[in-house]
Structure formats: structure tokens, C-alpha cells
Design a protein around this nucleic acid. Structure first.
Length: 507
DNA sequence: AGTGCAGTTGACTTT
DNA sequence: TAAAGTCAACTGCAC
């Protein structure tokens, strides 16, 4: 083994620090790398975990994005002196094998806010490291805070975190002469073939290009254009897969955005401000899974625990997943997602809401299917959003999207629908959004149901749960645990913000 | 020119 | 990040 071959040379060293790269595939603003490099020789390690990639929410498109990012990280580290070392296996086995083969003085990694499987993995590594007397340092990488006692004051802490200095990459790394290993093919990990011709490319260069083009001009129509899946491709930052893989840090993005905004006024400054708000929301949602990893599995509000619904293999689910519901705008969004791995926020919300509400699909099955299609799958954001758009959080109102109205609002000319649903290309203008008015289109299904009647039934079903007994107290607990403290939002104990004094009442 | 009325628009509330 | 319902103000038009 490579570890053994280099042993004599390595044993002579005073000890090296392992930097365990996870979803933080960059050299800049990387606290574990900076801390390890300050202490001596560094072994930069990327572990390809079969267990992680065998998970239900994992897909080849996510893996390939990370693999591309890791390959570029390897080159960036090579320039510093020690390229990335890639090992396949479960982290506990890989780390303990390394620690037996060479003197490891410490392990540095970022904290990850993920579902229960990865939390358990990190807990096991911590226990092993304690046992082996190897210091295991976990650094913060975004606005999510471990062991947060309360949400109060969170926004100020996010500001402070993102305004702290960006850490430079180390100047040099001592070469270790280890076998660099190879990045496995997705099939070797058992990942299903996942053609995604429009997928974004991984890597730091792509992240930087997106960031600079967004801040220079693409952000100008952001507020207006981000709601449309057609305009959103150009006018949204599309940095989400990079933030998920860590080719760019939230802090780097926030500081670049603030600098770009300070030299601007008007539309571009407004677009960048909106982007900054969304960067904070990014961390706000990751905080939810950090606080409660079970949200990937169970509804935040216990009253919805048994809500269930149709899943894979059932015709309704398959029609939704294939983009063949007969509602053109919804189908276009699904097909666009399948082929590009990305959709703007609003379109994602509609896909979930129609699935869980109109079609009565199981929210967790819906979430798993969409997770695999999102190149930018980020557990905390994803499961918070799926639960919210399915109406099972018990907080916020039930937001039900009308799949036909959304088409009229977001794609009034029908261009997006014609682009992604070829069966409707012959229908001009708005007719593509309502092919039933043209007597249908060859090869395209009739609507799977009367969306207005389905919406009514879903509304009654979901509100029915809310009107049941013992609902209120549990809802307040969810709000206290996860709710934003943004001023003006309803807080526990007060049903609405205090009324402003009104002069004309003159009591 | 003023009046009545149907239809529209926007602000706000409810689900 | 929704949609439907309510209500008041407004608009265009006929008389």
C-alpha cells in the first residue's frame, strides 16, 4: 500500500496534520487548511465514501460535480506543493489506516450540517480520534452554529461571521510523496447512469466566473427575473452547486457582493442586496438541519407524521416525475430540471407544492426524487423547503401554487414551455400553456386532473389537520426552534405584531 | 353636468 | 416564495 511504502520517510517527520476535505473543495478561506498548514506538514485528504454515495438522495450528477471540483482542488494544492490525496472507503477506516501508517498530529475538518447518517459518521470519527489521542478540530464554514441554544441574535452572528477576514490559502505545502490515489468512476460507486447534458461544471474557476459575472451585470434584473425559470438561468447567480460543494465559501461570496454593491447604485445594487439576503437565508435553512437532523425524515409538526401519500411505482408519482402531468408549465419545469440539474427557487416550490398537495404524493418520496435531480443538493435547505412547500412544518401559511397560473405569470409567451416540452412546439404563444384549448397536442397527455378541484381538496385536507386539537402548542414549539427572528414576523405568544396606535381612535 | 351602476383595481385579510 | 375572498375606491358609460 502507498501508505506503507512512504512510511520510513514519513516516520522521520515530527508529525503531519490531515485536512479532511468534505464539501469544502477549495484552498481559499479554508480554516482547517490554514490551521493545519500553520502547524507543519499537511496531508490534504478527500475521502470518497461509498456509504454516502449509496444514500437515497445521492446521484451521479452531484458526484461528478464534486469529482470535477476535487480534481481542480488537486491541481491547486499541487501548485502549493502537495496535491490532494484521494482515498475510497468509510472515513473511520481511511483515517485510522492513515494514522497507523504515519505520525498524525491532528485532523482538521469543517463542521458539516447534514442528515442523521453523516452526523453519526462524524460522531464516530470524533470518538475514534479521542480514543487514539489525535486532536480532531472541526471548524465552522458557514452561518450555521453547532449546539445553538436559541435562534435569538442569529442574524447578528451571521453578519459577524461573514464579515470576519477571508483566510488566504497557505503559501506552500511540504510535499509528502504519497500515492495520490484516483477519483473513482460513478459506476464504481454503484451510482445509476444519470445523463444531465446541461449540468453545471464543478471547480473553483467556474465558481469564480459565475460570481464575477453575476456581480458585474447579471444581477441587474435579479429581483424581477429570478421568479421565472427562463430568465432565471441568466439572472440568478447559480452559485448554489458551488456553495454546496464548497468551491466558494459563503463568506467569500458575501464579501465580494458587499464590495461590488458599495461601488454601485440603482438596479445592480438592489439585485446584489437581494442576493446578500438570500445568502443569509441559505445559512438560516442549514441551521434547521444542524439543530434537528431528523427533518430529512420526519415532519417538523407531529400532526403531519402520518400524512403519507403515493410514491415511486404509482402512476401519479411517475407522471409527475416524468414531466407528463398534462400541465405544461409544471412538466416543462420538471424536464428542465432533469436535463440541467437546476431550477430557480419558485419553480422548485411549485414542483413540490403540486406534488404533495394537488397530487397527494408522499413529501419524503418527492424530496428524495428531487434531491437526486438537484446538482446543488444541500440537505438543510432542501428538506426545510420540501417540508415547507408540502405544508407539513406547521409554521408559516400553506402556500399552494397553481400550476397553470404560474405559467401565465412566469412564462406568458410560452417560450419556456415550448423549449422543454417538444410536443407543444407547434402551439403558438399562450396556447402552449393551455393545449386543451387547442384540442390537445399529439403525444402530450391530457391534464392528470382538474387542478382547481384538486387544490380545493388539498386545502381542506391540510387545514383540517391544523384545526385538529393539540395543534397550536406544537406549532409554537416549531416556531421557537426554527423560526426566523426577523422583526415583524410572528413570535410565540403573540398572534400578530402589536397594532400601531391610531390617532382617530382617541380613547 | 350629475347620477347610478357594472366592472376593475388595489389593499388587506383569511385559509 | 400562494391564492381566494372582502371591501372600498375608482373608472367608464348610459341616461
Amino acid at each position: 500500500m502507498a501508505e506503507r511504502a512512504g512510511k520510513a520517510h514519513l516516520q522521520a517527520m515530527p508529525g503531519l496534520s490531515i485536512v479532511w476535505f468534505k464539501r469544502d473543495l477549495r484552498v481559499a478561506d479554508h480554516a482547517p487548511l490554514a490551521a493545519a498548514a500553520a502547524a507543519g506538514p499537511v496531508l490534504p485528504l478527500w475521502i470518497v465514501e461509498p456509504g454516502l454515495w449509496a444514500a437515497e438522495e445521492a446521484s451521479a450528477r452531484q458526484y461528478l460535480f464534486q469529482a470535477e471540483s476535487a480534481a481542480e482542488l488537486c491541481a491547486d494544492l499541487a501548485v502549493l506543493g502537495q496535491p490532494l490525496v484521494v482515498r475510497a472507503g468509510e472515513p473511520l477506516a481511511v483515517l485510522s489506516a492513515l494514522a497507523e501508517a504515519m505520525p498524525v498530529r491532528a485532523i482538521h475538518a469543517h463542521q458539516e450540517s447534514t442528515g442523521e447518517r453523516d452526523f453519526a459518521r462524524d460522531r464516530a470519527v470524533r470518538a475514534w480520534a479521542r480514543e487514539a489521542a489525535i486532536p480532531f478540530h472541526e471548524h465552522r464554514q458557514n452561518g450555521a452554529i453547532r449546539a445553538l441554544p436559541s435562534r435569538d441574535g442569529w442574524a447578528a452572528r451571521w453578519e459577524r461571521f461573514t464579515r470576519a477576514p477571508v483566510l488566504p490559502a497557505p503559501a506552500t505545502l511540504a510535499p509528502l510523496g504519497l500515492d495520490p490515489g484516483t477519483i473513482p468512476h460513478p459506476q464504481a460507486l454503484g451510482l445509476a447512469p444519470d445523463p444531465c447534458p446541461g449540468r453545471q461544471r464543478g471547480g473553483r474557476r467556474a465558481a469564480e466566473a459565475l460570481l464575477w459575472s453575476f456581480l458585474a451585470d447579471r444581477a441587474l434584473p435579479y429581483r424581477r427575473a429570478m421568479s421565472s425559470p427562463l430568465a432565471g438561468w441568466a439572472s440568478c447567480s447559480r452559485l448554489s452547486p458551488h456553495l454546496a460543494a464548497g468551491t466558494l465559501s459563503v463568506r467569500e461570496a458575501a464579501q465580494a457582493a458587499r464590495r461590488a454593491r458599495d461601488g454601485e447604485s440603482g438596479g445592480l445594487a438592489e439585485g446584489i442586496d437581494s442576493f446578500l439576503t438570500r445568502l443569509a437565508w441559505h445559512c438560516h435553512f442549514i441551521q434547521k438541519i444542524e439543530t434537528e437532523p431528523a427533518i430529512e425524515r420526519s415532519a417538523m409538526h407531529p400532526a403531519y407524521a402520518g400524512i403519507g401519500g403515493a410514491g415511486p411505482g404509482e402512476p401519479v408519482f411517475e407522471a409527475w416525475a416524468a414531466g407528463r402531468t398534462g400541465w405544461p408549465f409544471l412538466d416543462a419545469c420538471m424536464r428542465c430540471l432533469v436535463e440541467t440539474g437546476w431550477l430557480n427557487f419558485r419553480a422548485r416550490a411549485m414542483l413540490v407544492s403540486v406534488a404533495a398537495m394537488h397530487l397527494g404524493l408522499d413529501w419524503r418520496a418527492v424530496g428524495l426524487h428531487l434531491a437526486r435531480l438537484f446538482t446543488d443538493y444541500e440537505p438543510g435547505i432542501h428538506w426545510s423547503q420540501v417540508q415547507m412547500q408540502s405544508g407539513v412544518t406547521g409554521v408559516n401559511t400553506i402556500r399552494m401554487y397553481n400550476p397553470v397560473k404560474q405559467g401565465f405569470d412566469q412564462d406568458p409567451e410560452g417560450a419556456f414551455v415550448r423549449r422543454w416540452v417538444p410536443e407543444l412546439r407547434a402551439l403558438p404563444g399562450r396556447l402552449a400553456l393551455e393545449p386543451w384549448r387547442a384540442g390537445g397536442a399529439a403525444g402530450y397527455p391530457a391534464p392528470i386532473g382538474d387542478h382547481e378541484a384538486l387544490a380545493r381538496a388539498a386545502r381542506e385536507r391540510l387545514w383540517g389537520v391544523r384545526h385538529g386539537p393539540a395543534y397550536r402548542a406544537a406549532a409554537d414549539a416549531v416556531q421557537a426552534r426554527h423560526g426566523s427572528r426577523r422583526s415583524g414576523m410572528r413570535q410565540v405568544g403573540s398572534r400578530r405584531p402589536p397594532a400601531q396606535p391610531r390617532l382617530e381612535l382617541g380613547e
